[in-house]
Design a protein around this nucleic acid. Structure first.
Length: 294
DNA sequence: CGCCAGGGCACCG
DNA sequence: CGGTGCCATGGC
């Protein structure tokens, strides 16, 4: 991997195990729009990025080497050796080979904690297009305008401070439905200093999940997603309806199994690589509709 | 149109 | 405590 500045653009060259489209579309993030083939506009940590993949190179438009090195490389998790992760997983379990070969270019993004927390509270019992729409609405109403690209305007996801006076009624107007009081409770917890990010990152994932679940509306699944995508706990193994079906199909002979058992299975089998295994399986299984009854 | 969605809570026995 | 219904909204 090499970083080259060209006028206003930065090229990250010779990237392995990375596909921008797969990484954006795999369901881990909701704050982006597709602008063209292998080309996306996205928002993270108050910044806008216009990016386009060209073969094994990634073009970051209108940015600087400094900004790329200090933020976007880390955001896309490009410093990590995914070849090694894949071979560790495959050595443990060849049933993952189809998922990994098909979704070879997924990387786990390092997303901002607060946005990840709110986004996955919104995600419960909802489909990805609608989650994206709600995140966009909240950002437009309470965040800052960042840029226009294609036919889209991009706004930062609001900080906890920017949401401090937002009411449950306001949140319902964003079509969050019964999740509105949950979001409010999450904002209150963060503003009250009950969710120290550094502490949450440092503590074991089980303990981190427990603390996140003190927020009303955050259960095991949402907590695991926040731990995995927003707090760097790569061993977390979130179990949603898809992962449940997929793991049942591949490992439990298609037999209905409680989500708790599925989670224990993922954690014991994949260990510190649980989050990667989960994401390859989720995206692959969801794409081919694995385990969906007719 | 009825079902289900990257769930979790309250309530029931 | 273990199971069941409901929650609000939109895609398919």
């Amino acid at each position: 991997m090499k970083i080259v500045q060209d006028n206003n653009n930065v090229y990250v060259k010779d990237i392995r195990d990375f596909d921008l489209g797969q990484t954006m579309e795999c369901g881990q993030c909701f704050h982006f729009n597709k602008l063209g083939e292998d080309e996306y506009g996205l928002v993270a940590s108050g910044r806008f990025l216009h990016a386009k993949q060209e073969g094994s190179d990634l073009c970051l438009f209108d940015t600087t080497t400094d900004e790329a090195e200090s933020f976007w490389i880390k955001y896309f998790d490009l410093e990590r050796d995914y070849s090694q992760i894949k071979s560790m997983l495959l050595k443990e379990d060849e049933k993952l080979s189809e998922a990994i070969e098909t979704m070879w270019g997924v990387r786990i993004l390092n997303q901002e904690f607060f946005e990840t927390l709110i986004s996955f509270i919104i995600s419960q019992n909802k489909q990805i297009p609608h989650i994206k729409q709600i995140v966009a609405t909240i950002s437009r109403l309470y965040g800052n305008y960042l840029a226009k690209a294609g036919s889209f305007e991009f706004y930062s996801f609001p900080t906890p401070e920017q949401m401090k006076n937002v009411t449950v009624e306001d949140l319902k107007e964003c079509k969050t439905g019964f999740r509105a009081p949950y979001i409010k409770d999450a904002i209150d917890h963060v503003l009250a200093g009950k969710m120290n990010e550094d502490d949450l990152r440092a503590m074991p994932v089980m303990q981190c999940n427990q603390q996140l679940m003190s927020i009303k509306g955050v259960g095991v699944k949402v907590a695991n997603c926040v731990s995995l995508f927003g707090l760097g706990h790569r061993e977390a193994f979130p179990v949603d309806v898809w992962i449940k079906r997929i793991v049942e199909t591949l490992y439990f002979d298609g037999i209905d199994t409680p989500a708790e058992r599925i989670g224990e299975f993922g954690t014991s089998r994949f260990g510190e690589f649980g989050g990667y295994a989960q994401q390859y399986l989720f995206y692959y299984g969801k794409t081919i509709k694995m385990g969906v009854k007719k």
